[in-house]
C-alpha cells in the first residue's frame, strides 16, 4: 500500500479532531447525563456553575486533572498503568472509518465495519487488565463480569450488523450509507427493525451502561474494574466509556438510520443529530430501569438476542435469495 505524505497528514489531523471530539463529547455527555437524571427525578440537576450549570463538567474535569494519582500497594505496575491507556487509544482507531459526511471520512477503509468490530475487542482487554492488576477483589469481579458480558453481547451485535451487510452487499460504511435515502422510510431501520432492536439492546450491553452496568455496579462492586484508579487513570476510563457510547451510536446511525443523509442537505450534522438522539435514549434507559442480575443479563443475550439474531439473519438471506 502506498502511504503518501498526504494520507499521513490527513490521519494526524483526523486523530487530533477525534481526540477533540472525544473530550468534547465527554463534557457534553456528563452534563446531559446529570441534567436528564435530574429532570427525570424532578430536580434541577447541576445549576450553580456557569449558566444553568453548563460549566460543571469542565470544573469536574479540571479537578480530575489536578488530582493525585493514588496507587495501591501490590499492584502489577506495568499492567496497572497500561490498562487506562489501552482503554483510550484503540477508540481513536475506531473512529477512523466512520463517514461523517459525503467527503468527511478520516480514513476510507473498504472493510470499515470489520475494523471497528475487531478493535472494539481491545476495550474488554483493558477492562480485564485493569481489574486483574489492581489487586482488589471488587476490581477482579468487575473485570470478570466485563469480559463475559462484553464477549457475549458482541455476538448479537455482529449478527445484527451482518444482516445489514447482507442487504447492502458491502462492509464499507460509505456504501452502506449511500444505499439509504435521506428520508426515514428509506433507511435500513424499515427493512431491518428486528436487527435494529437487537443492536439497540446489545449496544447497551456492549458499552456496560445501565441497566447492564454489572462490571461497575456501584451498589455491589464499589466501582468495578476501575475501583483503584484515581485522577487521570479514572478519567481515561471515563473518556473511553463515553467515546465507546458515541462510537456505537455512530455505527447505529450509519447502519440503520441513514448516516449523514437526511432531509434538505446531507452532512455531518445529520449523523451527529442521530447519534446524540441515540445517546439521549441510552441516558433515558439508564435512569428508568433497575440493574439486571447477572444470570438475567446472560439469559437475555444467549436465550433471546442470539436466536433472534440468527433467525433475522436467516430470514434476510432467504428473502434476498428469493427476491433477487
Amino acid at each position: 500500500m502506498f502511504l503518501s505524505l498526504a494520507i499521513v497528514a490527513q490521519i494526524i489531523v483526523a486523530v487530533l479532531l477525534i481526540i477533540a471530539l472525544m473530550v468534547g463529547n465527554a463534557v457534553v455527555m456528563v452534563y446531559m447525563e446529570r441534567k436528564v437524571a435530574g429532570f427525570i427525578q424532578r430536580r434541577p440537576g447541576p445549576y450553580e456553575v456557569g449558566p444553568y450549570g453548563t460549566l460543571q463538567a469542565i470544573c469536574d474535569s479540571m479537578k480530575l486533572l489536578a488530582k493525585q494519582l493514588y496507587r495501591p500497594g501490590n499492584v502489577d505496575l506495568i499492567l496497572y498503568y497500561l490498562a487506562p491507556i489501552l482503554a483510550f487509544f484503540p477508540v481513536l482507531l475506531l473512529y477512523l472509518p466512520i463517514p461523517f459526511g459525503p467527503y468527511l471520512t478520516a480514513l476510507p477503509v473498504g472493510d470499515g465495519v470489520i475494523l471497528i468490530l475487531a478493535f472494539a475487542g481491545l476495550g474488554v482487554l483493558s477492562n480485564l487488565l485493569a481489574g486483574w492488576s489492581s489487586n482488589n477483589k471488587y476490581s477482579l469481579l468487575g473485570a470478570a463480569r466485563a469480559v463475559s458480558q462484553t464477549v457475549a453481547y458482541e455476538i448479537p451485535m455482529i449478527l445484527a450488523l451482518l444482516a445489514v451487510v447482507f442487504l447492502s452487499g458491502s462492509t464499507d460504511l460509505k456504501v452502506v450509507t449511500d444505499q439509504q435515502g435521506p428520508w426515514p422510510w428509506q433507511w435500513n431501520i424499515v427493512l431491518q427493525p428486528l436487527a435494529f432492536f437487537i443492536y439497540l439492546v446489545s449496544l447497551v450491553g456492549e458499552t456496560n451502561r445501565a441497566p447492564f452496568d454489572l462490571p461497575e455496579a456501584e451498589s455491589e462492586l464499589a466501582a468495578g474494574f476501575h475501583t483503584e484508579y484515581s485522577g487521570m487513570g479514572f478519567a481515561l476510563f471515563f473518556l473511553s466509556e463515553y467515546a465507546n457510547m458515541l462510537l456505537v451510536s455512530f455505527v447505529a446511525a450509519v447502519f440503520f438510520l441513514g448516516g449523514y443523509k437526511g432531509p434538505i442537505a446531507d452532512g455531518f450534522w445529520w449523523i451527529f443529530i442521530k447519534a446524540y438522539a441515540l445517546m439521549f435514549f441510552m441516558v433515558w434507559i439508564r435512569w428508568t430501569f433497575p440493574r439486571v442480575r447477572f444470570d438475567q443479563l446472560l439469559n437475555i443475550n444467549w436465550k433471546w438476542l442470539l436466536p433472534l439474531g440468527l433467525f433475522n439473519l436467516w430470514l434476510t438471506a432467504a428473502v434476498i435469495k428469493v427476491a433477487f
Binding site: R42, R43, T288
Partner: peptide, 21 residues
C-alpha cells in the same frame, strides 16, 4: 412493561421540577 416505564420517566422528564433552589 419496559415501554410503560420509559413513558413514565419521559413524562417526568418533561414535567417541571419540584425542588427549590
Amino acid at each position: 412493561s419496559l415501554g410503560v416505564g420509559m413513558a413514565i420517566t419521559g413524562r417526568y422528564l418533561l414535567s417541571p421540577v419540584e425542588t427549590i433552589h
